[in-house]
Amino acid sequence: MATGGRRGAAAAPLLVAVAALLLGAAGHLYPGEVCPGMDIRNNLTRLHELENCSVIEGHLQILLMFKTRPEDFRDLSFPKLIMITDYLLLFRVYGLESLKDLFPNLTVIRGSRLFFNYALVIFEMVHLKELGLYNLMNITRGSVRIEKNNELCYLATIDWSRILDSVEDNYIVLNKDDNEECGDICPGTAKGKTNCPATVINGQFVERCWTHSHCQKVCPTICKSHGCTAEGLCCHSECLGNCSQPDDPTKCVACRNFYLDGRCVETCPPPYYHFQDWRCVNFSFCQDLHHKCKNSRRQGCHQYVIHNNKCIPECPSGYTMNSSNLLCTPCLGPCPKVCHLLEGEKTIDSVTSAQELRGCTVINGSLIINIRGGNNLAAELEANLGLIEEISGYLKIRRSYALVSLSFFRKLRLIRGETLEIGNYSFYALDNQNLRQLWDWSKHNLTITQGKLFFHYNPKLCLSEIHKMEEVSGTKGRQERNDIALKTNGDQASCENELLKFSYIRTSFDKI
């Protein structure tokens, strides 16, 4: 039985969820670079991206490699990797027998973001014989899940209580170790020597080791999670996991709180800001991140802002960003909400898709409305799209047979046209069989910064309504002859009103 693990408890099935942008060198404390989270699957090609990484700022997932063999891993080693800020997950990587050479110096898994409450997941690794993470000293947050690894031993010899604050939620089941077939031998045991430290858990006094050649490092209890030197002297209180010299914040392997210019500090002093819960960055760093993602459509890219001495992905609820200094300031009234469309555009074809934009005031991208039916549609669209004030790209209304009016965009005031449909149009209306009105132009103002209007096959939309939009939106004169079809717009509506004058002759039985 794995020490510190839980057996036999019912657990939810383990679901495996399925960018080499360097964020800056980590400095003297770390020998390499800070790398983003990685999802490495199918083959070993991307694994080489770990070569210079000291910190993975995010998670590391290595999974679904069915053609790899043990010899493929023999020359692979990433000794610079010290810390993973989120979680480490391995799933069905064939041929991998140990992690001792792959990650010989991995010391800390912070667990800032977890995989279903777990910071370390080893699942269905069919050839893994031992973990071998002999320098792993601290899992700051989260638990361990090690399950269905039929060859995995050296679990009962690990004292997880020396690595985690609590072992109650560890789930370590259905491994070879369960069948008591392992016969784990710690260093020196074969020669009758006791080389590794022994600890007591559940009444068992057991030597602690990761492999037959690597003991588990056990520091004096007084050192807590700070770690200790090879001689057993406690590291500085700002260290986490390990250090090369005692009581020196510049000799830590990793930091308990924050890293700044080669030393570990309790908090980031001005003019620095907390970033990702582990390091200090200056304003320029946060500003660069903001600008890199301002026009990016890459998933996970955030326009970072500053709030409460932190550089964070977005302002919290009730705050909006001051564009001059990136500071989050309290909103006066309802907060603006910028919604970034991942692929640059979004099609609204149902109430469900409209709900995804609920509360958005600025759309960074283009909207395509293609709704053919739905219950209580006008009210639903207004509830979900009615706060949109600005669209950076274009607005396209296409084959939306259920629409009679666009009044559900009740606050839309600006279409920038930074991206144009077919390279020309910022407003595009095609084949809307029941569209009769755009907006009530006596109450609604709309500016279209650039781009043209396109109207074709809107049989109940009168040309007068379209011409009014040209005047109000500032697009009059931009359109070419064929942009607004004269014969297919309003051709099934009563669009022309003329005053009919009647004269009559009164007659009676005795007068003409």
Rank of each mutant, 00 (worst) to 15 (best):
N135I: 01
E238I: 02
W210P: 01
H48N: 13
G188N: 05
F91S: 02
L260S: 13
D86T: 01
P31I: 12
T85C: 11
I109C: 00
E266S: 13
V55Q: 01
T157P: 08
M83V: 05
S244W: 09
Y304N: 10
H307R: 08
H307E: 09
C315K: 00
K294M: 04
C239L: 00
Q299L: 12
N170W: 06
L155S: 04
D261P: 10
K129L: 08
N175Q: 03
I185H: 12
C243Y: 01
E151I: 04
K224H: 03
N42M: 05
N325Q: 13
N308W: 10
F258N: 04
V34Q: 03
P316D: 04
C35D: 00
S317M: 06
C335N: 03
M137I: 03
E97A: 11
S324Q: 13
P187N: 05
L133P: 01
C255M: 01
E231F: 15
N138G: 08
G95L: 07
C280A: 00
H236L: 02
D277G: 10
E124L: 01
I139Y: 00
H59K: 15
G188R: 06
R298Y: 12
L326N: 10
D277I: 05
T211A: 03
P249H: 04
T199K: 05
D277W: 07
G203E: 14
C301Q: 14
S324G: 13
C228T: 00
K292L: 14
L164I: 05
D159N: 07
S161Y: 11
Q287E: 03
C209I: 00
Y134W: 13
Q276Y: 10
Q299D: 05
N195Y: 09
S323E: 13
L99Q: 00
Y273K: 13
L131Q: 02
A198R: 13
N295K: 14
I163V: 06
F205L: 08
C215W: 02
Q216T: 01
E151F: 08
E181P: 05
Q216P: 01
L106C: 02
H274G: 12
Y259L: 15
F103A: 00
I56G: 03
F205M: 06
K224R: 06
S323K: 06
L233C: 01
G32S: 05
C315A: 02
A119P: 00
C228G: 03
C186P: 01
I163N: 00
L164W: 02
G188W: 15
D247E: 10
P271M: 08
Y154C: 00
K100T: 09
T107E: 04
K129Q: 13
T85N: 04
S317T: 12
H127L: 14
K193T: 09
N138D: 05
P79E: 12
R145A: 04
Q276D: 12
N242K: 06
C331V: 09
P79R: 08
E51C: 13
N295L: 09
L44E: 10
R41M: 14
A190Q: 15
Q287S: 06
Y304I: 12
R256F: 14
L88F: 12
M65G: 02
L326E: 09
M83G: 11
I201Y: 11
D86N: 12
M137R: 08
W278Q: 07
N150P: 10
N52G: 04
E238K: 12
S143A: 09
C228V: 02
Y171L: 07
F285Y: 03
L128H: 01
V305E: 02
P70W: 07
P197W: 04
S213N: 13
S237G: 09
T267E: 08
D288N: 11
N138I: 08
R46C: 10
C243N: 00
C286I: 05
L99Y: 02
M125Y: 00
N43R: 11
P313A: 10
L120Q: 00
I122G: 01
N170Y: 12
L90R: 00
N202Q: 04
